[in-house]
């Protein structure tokens, strides 16, 4: 269908991005392909040591999931801070990622967690790491004929910590700035670090240099401040009604510090 109709066909899952576009007359596709009744797309479970999030998994399901609360706190926290309860009831994780709004929370939280998207199209299935999935505002490496069927998140390991901190002017608002942090420890040192930034660039951003600076280090105050500074430098915010670029960059630094500090206790615990 997507191949035949091109831009004239749109996928409907939760509808929390598509319906506003239709309402505002920014999009007027002739065909809406409702995938809500396709069986088997609502998996939210661990398999082979990793997490599978199917295309129809709602944000609310993630918010309430004990599995996410215990094993993937960054995702659990992100879910609870996305928009408002009504939108969380309907909006899907995969839909948010495929929509690729630079203000979207799922992209940066999942990127920090090292996730990848499973895309399926006429040519079969392929796996796209989220770290280079976002090409620009509302633009991804997805082919026009491909659909995101699943998100896969690697297991966090035995000792790990994570947090998603978001500054919003009001519940339901997009982030002024938000930071997702995921760290895994081995022998008291950081084995893997992921830092994703929301609302401070043309896409969800990954603070790669900050991540690299952390790997192999102990998560002490010096490492925390150094990484926070690098994360702030990775941000590329614009001044707008939510605040100045300088302010948003500062919030990225403060939130990276706070998220890392919250994770530090997990190193040996």
């Amino acid at each position: 269908m997507l191949g035949e109709r091109g831009e004239d066909a749109k996928i409907l899952s939760g509808g929390q991005s598509l319906i506003p576009l239709l309402k505002l007359r920014f999009a007027s596709p002739a065909v809406v392909v409702d995938i809500n009744r396709i069986a088997g797309l609502d998996t939210l479970a661990e398999e082979d040591g990793g997490l599978r999030i199917g295309a129809l998994v709602r944000t609310k399901t993630c918010e309430l999931s004990e599995l996410l609360r215990d094993r993937y706190p960054i995702l659990s926290q992100a879910a609870a801070q996305i928009s408002d309860p009504i939108i969380r009831n309907l909006g899907t994780v995969c839909g948010s990622v495929a929509h690729a709004d630079p203000q979207g929370d799922w992209g940066s939280a999942l990127m920090a967690a090292g996730a990848e998207a499973v895309a399926r199209g006429p040519g079969g299935e392929r796996t796209l790491p989220l770290s280079d999935f976002f090409q620009g505002p509302f633009t991804t490496t997805l082919e026009p004929t491909e659909v995101v069927t699943e998100i896969r998140v690697p297991g966090p390991g035995e000792r790990s910590g994570g947090a998603y901190l978001k500054l919003e002017r009001r519940v339901g608002d997009f982030a002024t700035a938000a930071v997702g942090v995921q760290v895994s420890f081995e022998a008291g040192k950081i084995a893997r670090a992921g830092i994703g930034l929301t609302g401070v660039g043309a896409t969800n951003l990954r603070a790669t240099e900050a991540e690299q600076a952390l790997v192999g280090a102990e998560l002490d105050e010096e490492a925390i401040q150094g990484a926070a500074e690098l994360a702030a430098q990775a941000a590329d915010p614009q001044s707008d009604t939510r605040g100045s670029a300088e302010y948003k960059r500062h919030v990225v630094r403060v939130f990276t510090e706070r998220a890392l500090r919250a994770s530090a206790g997990k190193a040996n615990g």
């Binding site: 500054l167 002017r169 002024t176 939510r242 605040g243 100045s244 302010y247 500062h250």
Partner: peptide
């Protein structure tokens, strides 16, 4: 009184 004004 938004948070950015207070921060300034």
């Amino acid at each position: 009184v938004t948070s950015d004004k207070v921060w300034e």
